[in-house]
């Protein structure tokens, strides 16, 4: 008994530095945010506890539900597109094609270029007067006058998704490529010997064996996209007319723009809850998958 206790204490002592670090960096700010979300903190030296008032306000009269819905749509299309292009890209890069290394290198620039520079580049391309996209469409006669993509609600919404996809695809591709390369070559040879064609092999071997990696990547991408701030902020600052305002932008605007720290904290807590739900769903899926394999 004593031995077990001293072993536990020893383990705790070893973990202590990491635990203290996590407490300071993660736990305390999180706790403080939750506390703040129940206050009317603003740009004043004091604040009062207001109970659930902030939560009632954001889910009540305001447009936060609309923002949540927009965030989900934005995240869904962005993640789905990244996963689709990433999977296709990884498959192509994994195929024995001439110049394979060159193609692999060419997938990297969006990831290598500093994000802000990449976003500004897209901002220029979206410009109606001298942007490349509007110019090309006019040259081809598809549109007759300049198209200020970021100035119109629906096009701005999809434009921010396109930029997010452009930035996010390389990581998804490289990650899935690594997962694809870890599938033993023997499995494909065995399937080929049995007469399975390329598509059949992809459907019945590659995809199922890549599922854990795809799940992990989906979650990582989901969290990153859900919390994606810089792309929207640099391109549209949530506009025009809030058409690209996602939860994170809305939270920032509330907390930093309107200086309503308490309400902003409540929004941040809601984001945190959503992300936690994603994680729970992910871990359940992974557990189910590994149980399936162990059967």
């Amino acid at each position: 008994m004593t031995g077990t206790r001293s072993a536990s204490l020893f383990a705790l002592a070893l973990l202590a530095p990491a635990l203290i670090y996590i407490l300071i960096i993660v736990a305390y700010p999180l706790f403080d945010t939750v506390v703040l979300s129940f206050t009317n903190a603003a740009l004043r030296p004091t604040y009062d506890f207001v109970g659930w008032a902030n939560y009632q306000r954001i889910f009540g009269a305001g447009n936060f539900t609309e923002v949540i819905l927009r965030t989900f749509i934005w995240t869904f299309f962005s993640v789905a597109t990244k996963m689709l292009i990433g999977t296709l890209g990884a498959t192509l890069l994994n195929a024995a094609i001439p110049g394979q290394t060159l193609f692999r290198i060419l997938t990297m620039p969006p990831w290598i270029v500093p994000m802000a520079i990449g976003i500004f580049m897209w901002g220029w391309m979206y410009n109606g007067q001298f942007g490349m996209i509007s110019g090309l469409l006019q040259n081809f006669g598809i549109i007759s006058k300049p198209w200020p993509i970021l100035a119109q609600g629906s096009s701005a919404f999809w434009a921010t998704i396109v930029t997010d996809v452009w930035i996010g695809v390389p990581m998804v591709t490289i990650y899935l490529l690594a997962a694809m390369q870890s599938i033993p070559k023997d499995l494909y040879e065995a399937a080929w010997t049995d007469g399975a064609g390329r598509f059949y092999r992809f459907r019945r071997i590659t995809l199922p064996l890549m599922m854990p990696a795809m799940l992990t990547m989906s979650l990582l991408s989901l969290i990153a996209t859900f919390n994606s701030f810089d792309i929207i902020w640099i391109l549209t600052q949530g506009g025009p007319s809030g058409s690209t305002t996602t939860m994170i932008i809305d939270t920032y605007k509330t907390a930093m723009g309107s200086r309503k720290y308490g309400e902003g904290a409540a929004r941040a807590v809601v984001i945190c809850i959503f992300v936690s739900i994603f994680c729970i769903v992910y871990f359940r899926a992974v557990r189910k998958l590994s149980q399936g394999e162990a059967k």
């Binding site: 023997d186 065995a190 010997t193 007469g195 064996l209 394999e293």
Partner: peptide
């Protein structure tokens, strides 16, 4: 598949899923 052969691999090459 058209050679009328079947092969057993050193690694067994079983589909784990």
């Amino acid at each position: 598949v058209q050679r009328g052969i079947a092969m057993v691999f050193q690694s067994y090459a079983l589909y784990p899923h």
